[in-house]
Design a protein around this nucleic acid. Structure first.
Lengths: 90, 90
DNA sequence: CATCTGATTAGATGATTATCGAAATATCGA
DNA sequence: TCGATATTTCGATAATCATCTAATCAGATG
């Protein structure tokens, strides 16, 4: 993972609301965007914005099925991010 | 670690310059603020600001000795943060 | 005491960004 | 085709924040 992506991820996590959304995504193998909206009080516009940030950071995989978006955590990237962070410790 | 501190940490890491400073701190057992300034091009005011953010997040321990500040990574906190992050993975 | 050096504070500026409402786009079902 | 639902885009606003300069504080040393 290059340092650019690393920092994009770090910034993507920095907003608490966005982090919580990501945590929600991580709970399931896959979740629909509309399901997230049922569980988190948030406007569609704002959720769309956060999704774009998470996708931009490479943290999620987005699959479109009809009207719906299905979201998955990219667990391999997440593990890479964690091991990158762990390097700080020496 | 409560969620408030967790989010303070994620925000503290979100600025690349500040993250790099933290990484520099982590490299040594302890480092003087003035040494950091020799190694990173940054004004004293900005460095002071970043130190405050890192301290506020609980990531560093600050020891004053005469005119100098000596900075240490709080490795226990860092480990706690990592393991908190790892919980996302399930 | 005068001065130098390290660090903080205050105040200002510019950039980024989270948020929303409204309009637009897309897909489905009747 | 019409209406309902899901999502995106646009435009605006408000808040946050990184950065700097200048001024100040604190400790060391002459």
């Amino acid at each position: 993972m290059d340092s650019e992506q690393f920092h994009r991820i770090t910034k993507a996590l920095a907003d608490p609301r966005r982090f919580n959304i990501l945590a929600r995504i991580a709970k399931d193998k896959e979740i629909a965007c509309s399901d997230i909206r049922c569980q988190v009080p948030i406007t569609a516009a704002t959720l769309s914005h956060h999704m774009k940030e998470l996708a931009n950071a490479g943290l999620i995989e987005v699959r479109k099925e009809g009207q719906f978006l299905h979201i998955k955590l990219r667990r391999k990237i997440w593990r890479e991010y964690l091991s990158q962070l762990a390097k700080l410790q020496g």
